[in-house]
Design a protein around this nucleic acid. Structure first.
Length: 1026
RNA sequence: GGGUGAUUAGCUCAGUUGGUAGAGCGCUUCCUUUACACGGAAGAUGUCGGGAGUUCGAGCCUCUCAUCACCCA
C-alpha cells in the first residue's frame, strides 16, 4: 500500500494519542526496566487556564525529557495537575454569576458560593488538560492532582485526593514549630478583591502623578529663620517662616499623619525639631498637632526635605513610625474608601491630640479602632478624598504658591504676558503599586494577617544552591535567587477570600482572670478592641475542629468537668461587636478564622502533595523529583517557596535542577497581549502545522537563557522537516524495500553503509550529550542536520545506484542499513516529534513495542565510526560539491553530462574514485573520467586532495569569468593562508600554543598551499589561451 | 536608584574550558531529474555595538562607554 503524500497530522495525532493513552503508555513506571526514577512535576496551571505559548514551550521540554528517560528504561513519572488559583478562580466565577444574572457572591454566602465554584470547576475547569493532550504531553493523567482536592467544601463525587490534608498538616506543623505567626502589619491591600496580597502579587508601574506642596503651620504661630545654602555654604535664601513645607503625592493620607520627620543632619529644620505643627486639614476647631521628629529616612535633597509620617498608609513611613513609636491611623475601609465607622471626629481628634501631647498612653488595638477621618470626608472614595483635601487646603491658603507666566492675547489680539500665582503642583512620574489580578491601585493597609517567618526557613534553600545540591539554569538565575532570598520579607499567607484552604485556626475568648467562686461567667477585659483578627482572642490551631476542641478544653482547664458538647463552633462574625462577650464553662464558643491561605502556600507543597503525602504512599518514591522546568517569573513565587517548604517539612530538596526560561514572545520579541492582537495560540499552530512542528520549533529555540521568540515561519519550516522525514520513508517504499521492523544493525561492508552507520553513532552521542545538559536546541539542530543533511541529502542519493543495481549482496546490505538508519532517526527524533515518528514506526510489518516505549540506543561513535569510510565518503562529497559548484559557475546546463579529467591522481584518490565513481558520476553528472598528463586548454580546475580534477569545457567556458572565479577563491585562500603563516611564523605561538593546535595549523597550511598551487597553475593555463 | 541580561548575516537567533564565525527564514540564479516544489543545485551578505586592556591568539576573559530589555525599589 502506497503511503500518503504527506503526514496527515490532523487525524493521525488524535488517533495516536488515544492509542498511547489507552495502552497506558504514560503511566508512572510504564516501560521501566530499571529502578532509577525520573520525575518531573508539571507546574500546575490554573484550573481556569488555557494552553498558551508559554505552556506549550515548557511542556515540550518536559515531555522531551520524560519520553527520553522513559525510552531509556527509567521508572518515569510526569505528574500533572491543576492549581485552584484563589483570586483568579473566585473572580471568574463571580463574573459568571453576574453574567448569568445569578445572586452575587455575598448574597449567596460562603457555602453556596463554594458550591458554585466546584460546580464551575466540574463543568469548565481543566480545559487545559485536554489541550495539553493535543501537544502530545506524556503525563500520567490517572494521577492528575488538584491543590484543593480533599477540601471540606468539595462535593461528593469529586475526584479523590488529599491535597487539603497536606496543606493543613503543614500549616499546623509550621505553626507549632513557630514558623507561622499572626500579626498586625502593613500589607498590600487590594481594594477590589478586598484581600491582602503578597509583595510578589504587586506590580509597580510608573504613572503620571502629582506632588503637592503644603504648609504645616507651627503650633501657636511660632516662627523660625529658614536658611538655605548652596554647595559652597553661601546663603541663597533666608526668610522667617511660621510653617514647615511638606511635599506629598498622597494628600488624602494627611488625615492620618502621626508626625513630620526631617533628617537629623538637616540644619534648615534644626530650630524646630521637637516642636509641634498643625495638619492643615479638617475642622478648624480640632486641628491636630503633630510633633516634628528626626529620622534618617528623609532625603534632604528631595522635596522640601521634610516628610509627613503616615504609618498606616506607606511602607517607608511605617518603618519610621515603628522606630519613633508614632501612632498609625488607618483611614480607609476594605474598599479603599475613607472610613465611616467609629466615634465622631471631635472625640477621636481629642484622643489623638492627647496622644501627640504625650498625655495619653496608646496601644495598637486602640489606635486601630480610632477613625481620624473628619465627617466631611467620611465615606468618600480615596481619590475623591484626595481632590477635596487639596481643594480645602488650597482655599485656606496653606498650599505653597508660585508664579507662572504665560502668554495670552488681549482684546486687540496683541500678545501679553500674564503672571499668575498658583499652587505649586509638580507633575511627576511616580511608581504606583497595582494588583496583578485586579489592576487597581494597591493600598498599604494595617491589618492582622498570617505570616510565614521566611527568615527562619530560607537558610536550607539558600544552602541547596550555594552547595550545588540544587542547580539553577541558566546560572544567572542563581544570583537573582541569592539576592532575593538574602533579603527576604515575611510572607503574608492569609487572604480574605473564600476560594482556598481555610486557615485551620479556631479562636475563643481568652481567660484573663479566673474566679470560679464568685463568677461563673468570665468576661474579656471591658472595652478591649477585639475581633477575630486580634491577639485578644486565643487561637487553637489544628487540622480539624475536633482537635481544636480538645485544645480548647485543655486551655479552659475544664477537661473532665465539661464534655466536648459544651465547646461549640459558631460562625465567624462580620464585625467585632457581633461577638458575644466572654464565655461560660457550659457554653464555650469557638469560631474559625474565615481567611484562606495564599494559593502559593499550597502550590509550595506541590512536589510531595501530589504524591499522596502525608499518607504513606508508594508514589513517594518519586520524591524528590529531578528537574523543575518553569518560567523565570515564578522563581520567587513558586520555586523558592517549594524549596523552602520541602526543607521545612521533609528536610529534603524537592529537585536537583531548576531550568528557568524566559517569557515566550512574538516573532518581534514583543510580549503577547490581547490588546496588541499579537497573541499566538499554540492550538492554531497545531491545527495548521501539527504538534510535532510546534514542538520542534520549541525545542530549537530553547537555548539556555535565550530570548524566546516564536515565529510561524519557523514552525512551518519544521512542518516541512517532518514532511522530509516522511518522504524518506516514501523513498524506501518506492524502492520496495522490505520493512520487517526491529531488525538488528547490519554488519556493513559497503563504504557508504559503514559511513552512515558511523554518522548515526555520532548523532546519538550528540543528542544524549545535549539532552543531558538541557541544551534542547543542540539536540534539535543535530537531529535536523543529520536527518536532512546527511541521511536525505547524501545517503539516500548514494543508495540509489545500489538499489537499482545488480549486486544483490550490496543491495540487500544497503536496504537493511537504510531501514536501520531510518529507524534510528525515528527513535532519536521521537522525544521531540512523537506523532509522526510513531506513525512511521507503525509502518513496519511487526514491532515488539510502540515507539513510545522503544529502547533508546546506547551505541557509541567509537564503536560505529569507520575512519577510512568516513574519510572516503567525505572526499566523495567534497568532489561532488566542488564539481557542482564549478559547473554552476561555468553555466554548464544542470542536466548536461560532462566529461571529467584528472591529473596527478595518487593511489588513495584512485581507490576512492574506483570505489565510488558510480555515485560521483550520477550526482555530479559526470560522463567519464580520463587521467591526463596536462589539462587541455579551457579546462575548469577542481583542486582536490590527492589529485587535481578538471572539467574540459573547451569553448564552453568564458575564460575571463573562470579566471575571476579562481582569483576569488585565491583571495579567500590568501586570507586564510596569511593567518596561518602569520601564526606559524610567530615564534611565541609555536612556543606557547598547545601542540595539537600547532600541528593542526601546519597541516592546514600544507593543504591550503597545495590548493593554492593548483589554482595558480590553472590561472596560468587560462591566461595562455586568453 | 539597585540588580540581571542582551547587542553576531536583511530578519530571528546559535556559537559549551579563548584557536580565527554558523543555522533557519528571506534574497539571487538555475532545475518540475522516477522520495520529496512543504523539493533539489548553486550563490551573495558579517571591522561579532564603540573604545581600551590581558594573551602568541579575543565573538568568548577584564575595564569603560552607548543603546535596549527585564526584575526589584
Amino acid at each position: 500500500m502506497a503511503m500518503d503524500k504527506t503526514f496527515d497530522a490532523k487525524t493521525a495525532e488524535a488517533r495516536i494519542y488515544e492509542m498511547w493513552e489507552n495502552a497506558g503508555a504514560f503511566k508512572a513506571g510504564a516501560n521501566a526496566s530499571r529502578d532509577e526514577t525520573f520525575c518531573i512535576q508539571l507546574p500546575p496551571p490554573n484550573v481556569t487556564g488555557h494552553l498558551h505559548v508559554g505552556h506549550a514551550f515548557n511542556h515540550t521540554l518536559m515531555d522531551i525529557l520524560t519520553r527520553w528517560k522513559r525510552m531509556q528504561g527509567y521508572d518515569t513519572l510526569w505528574q500533572p495537575g491543576l492549581d485552584h488559583a484563589g483570586i483568579a478562580t473566585q473572580l471568574m466565577v463571580e463574573k459568571e454569576l453576574a453574567a448569568t444574572g445569578q445572586p452575587k457572591r455575598t448574597e449567596l454566602g460562603r457555602e453556596k458560593f463554594l458550591e458554585k465554584v466546584w460546580e464551575w470547576k466540574g463543568d469548565k475547569g481543566g480545559v487545559i488538560e485536554q489541550q495539553a493532550r493535543r501537544l502530545g504531553d506524556s503525563m500520567d493523567w490517572s494521577r492528575s492532582a488538584f491543590t484543593m482536592s480533599g477540601a471540606e467544601s468539595a462535593p461528593e463525587g469529586e475526584k479523590p485526593g488529599n491535597f487539603h490534608d497536606a496543606v493543613l498538616k503543614v500549616f499546623v506543623q509550621m505553626y507549632n514549630d513557630g514558623l507561622i505567626y499572626r500579626g498586625k502589619r502593613l500589607v498590600n491591600w487590594d481594594p477590589h478583591f478586598e484581600t491582602a496580597i503578597s509583595d510578589l502579587e504587586v506590580e509597580n508601574i510608573e504613572v503620571d502623578g502629582h506632588m503637592w506642596h503644603f504648609k504645616y503651620p507651627l503650633a501657636g504661630g511660632e516662627t523660625y529663620e529658614y536658611v538655605e545654602k548652596d554647595e559652597d555654604g553661601n546663603v541663597t535664601l533666608r526668610e522667617t517662616r511660621d510653617y514647615i513645607s511638606i511635599a506629598t503625592t498622597r494628600p488624602e493620607t494627611m488625615l492620618g499623619d502621626g508626625a513630620v520627620a526631617v533628617n537629623p543632619k538637616d540644619e534648615r529644620y534644626a530650630p524646630i525639631v521637637g516642636k509641634l505643627c498643625e495638619i492643615p486639614v479638617g475642622p478648624k476647631a480640632q486641628r491636630r498637632l503633630i510633633p516634628i521628629i528626626t529620622d534618617p529616612y528623609p532625603d534632604m535633597d528631595f522635596g522640601s526635605g521634610a516628610v509627613k509620617i503616615t504609618g498606616a498608609h506607606d511602607f517607608n513611613d511605617y518603618e519610621v513610625a515603628k522606630r519613633g513609636n508614632i501612632p498609625m491611623y488607618s483611614l480607609m475601609d476594605t474598599k479603599g474608601a475613607m472610613r465611616a465607622d467609629g466615634k465622631p471626629y471631635v472625640e477621636e481628634a481629642a484622643t489623638a491630640q492627647a496622644i501627640a501631647n504625650g498625655e495619653q498612653k496608646f496601644d495598637e488595638a486602640m489606635i486601630a479602632a480610632m477613625n481620624m477621618v473628619p465627617e466631611e470626608y467620611r465615606g468618600l472614595d480615596r481619590f475623591e478624598a484626595r481632590k477635596k483635601v487639596v481643594e480645602d487646603i488650597t482655599s485656606e491658603g496653606n498650599a505653597i504658591m508660585h508664579d507662572v507666566t504665560r502668554t495670552e492675547k488681549d482684546e486687540d489680539g496683541n500678545k501679553v504676558e500674564v503672571t499668575e500665582t498658583v499652587p505649586f503642583v509638580e507633575a511627576k512620574k511616580i511608581m504606583q503599586p497595582f494588583g496583578d489580578r485586579s489592576k487597581v491601585v494597591i493600598e498599604p493597609a494595617l491589618t492582622d494577617q498570617w505570616f510565614v517567618d521566611t527568615a527562619k526557613i530560607v537558610g536550607p534553600a539558600l544552602d541547596a544552591v550555594r552547595e550545588g545540591r540544587t542547580k539553577i539554569m541558566p546560572e544567572s538565575g542563581e544570583k537573582v535567587f541569592y539576592h532575593w532570598l538574602e533579603n527576604i520579607e515575611p510572607w503574608c499567607i492569609s487572604r480574605q477570600l473564600w476560594w482556598g484552604h481555610q486557615i485551620p485556626v479556631w479562636y475563643g475568648h481568652p481567660v484573663h482572670e479566673i474566679n470560679w467562686a464568685t463568677d461563673k461567667r468570665l468576661r474579656t477585659e471591658p472595652g478591649a478592641n477585639v475581633d477575630h483578627t486580634s491577639f485578644d482572642f486565643v487561637a487553637f490551631c489544628a487540622p480539624t475542629f475536633e482537635q481544636a476542641q480538645e485544645q480548647a478544653l485543655e486551655y479552659y482547664r475544664i477537661k473532665g468537668i465539661a464534655s466536648p458538647e459544651t465547646v461549640i463552633e459558631i460562625e465567624a462574625a462580620p464585625t467585632r461587636e457581633s461577638y458575644p462577650m466572654g464565655w461560660a464553662p457550659d457554653n464555650i464558643e469557638l469560631w474559625r478564622d474565615p481567611d484562606v491561605l495564599d494559593t502559593w502556600f499550597s502550590s509550595g507543597l506541590w512536589p510531595f502533595g501530589t504524591l499522596g503525602w502525608p499518607e504513606d504512599n508508594d508514589a513517594m518514591k518519586y520524591f524528590p523529583g529531578d528537574v523543575l522546568i518553569t518560567g523565570q517569573d515564578i522563581l520567587f513565587f513558586w520555586v523558592a517557596r517549594m524549596m523552602m517548604m520541602s526543607q521545612a517539612v521533609l528536610k529534603e530538596d524537592p529537585f536537583h535542577t531548576v531550568y528557568l526560561h524566559q517569557l515566550v514572545r512574538d516573532a518581534k520579541g514583543e510580549k503577547m497581549s490581547k490588546t496588541k492582537g499579537n497573541v499566538i495560540d499554540p492550538l492554531d499552530m497545531i491545527n495548521e502545522y501539527g504538534a510535532d512542528a510546534l514542538r520542534f520549533s520549541n525545542a530549537q529555540m530553547a537555548a539556555l537563557g535565550g530570548v524566546l521568540k516564536i515565529s510561524e515561519d519557523r514552525i512551518k519550516g519544521y512542518r516541512n522537516f517532518g514532511t522530509k522525514l516522511w518522504n524518506a520513508f516514501s523513498f524506501a517504499d518506492h524502492y520496495e524495500i522490505a520493512y520487517p521492523g526491529d531488525a538488528a544493525r547490519p554488519t556493513a561492508t559497503q563504504t557508504l553503509n559503514k559511513w552512515i552507520i558511523g554518522e548515526t553513532g555520532k548523532v546519538r552521542e550528540e543528542v544524549d550529550a545535549a539532552l543531558e545538559s538541557y541544551r534542547f536546541n543542540d539536540a534539535a539542530n543535530a537531529l535536523y542536520a543529520f536527518t536532512w543533511g546527511k541521511v536525505c541529502d547524501w545517503y539516500l542519493e548514494f543508495s540509489k545506484p545500489i538499489l537499482q543495481g545488480e549486486d544483490a549482496t550490496a543491495k540487500a546490505e544497503t536496504e537493511q542499513t537504510l531501514r536501520w538508519v531510518l529507524d534510528q532517526c525515528l527513535i532519536l527524533l521521537h522525544p521531540i516529534m512523537p506523532f509522526i515518528t510513531e506513525e512511521l514506526w507503525g509502518l513496519a510489518d511487526s514491532r515488539a513495542k510502540m515507539l513510545v516505549h522503544a529502547d533508546w540506543p546506547t551505541y557509541t561513535a567509537a564503536e560505529l565510526v569507520d575512519a577510512d569510510a568516513d574519510r572516503e565518503m567525505n572526499w566523495v562529497i567534497d568532489l561532488i560539491d566542488n564539481t557542482r559548484s564549478a559547473r554552476a559557475q561555468s553555466h554548464v546546463p544542470a542536466g548536461a553530462k560532462v566529461p571529467l579529467v584528472v591529473t596527478g591522481l595518487d593511489a588513495k584518490g584512485q581507490s576512492a574514485w574506483d570505489n565510488n565513481h558510480v555515485l560521483i558520476q550520477r550526482l555530479a553528472r559526470i560522463e567519464s573520467l580520463t587521467a591526463v598528463d596536462a589539462f587541455p586548454k579551457g579546462c575548469v580546475t577542481i583542486p582536490m586532495e590527492g589529485g587535481t580534477f578538471g572539467l574540459p569545457l573547451a569553448d564552453l567556458i568564458d575564460v575571463p569569468e573562470e579566471i575571476a572565479r579562481l582569483e576569488k577563491t585565491l583571495q579567500k585562500l590568501a586570507k586564510e593562508l596569511g593567518g596561518l603563516r602569520g601564526r606559524l611564523g610567530n615564534p611565541k605561538f609555536v612556543a606557547s600554543a598547545p601542540e595539537e593546535v600547532v600541528a593542526e595549523a601546519k597541516e592546514n597550511l600544507a593543504l591550503r598551499e597545495g590548493e593554492e598551487a593548483q589554482i595558480k597553475a590553472a590561472i596560468a593555463r587560462l591566461k595562455e589561451i586568453g
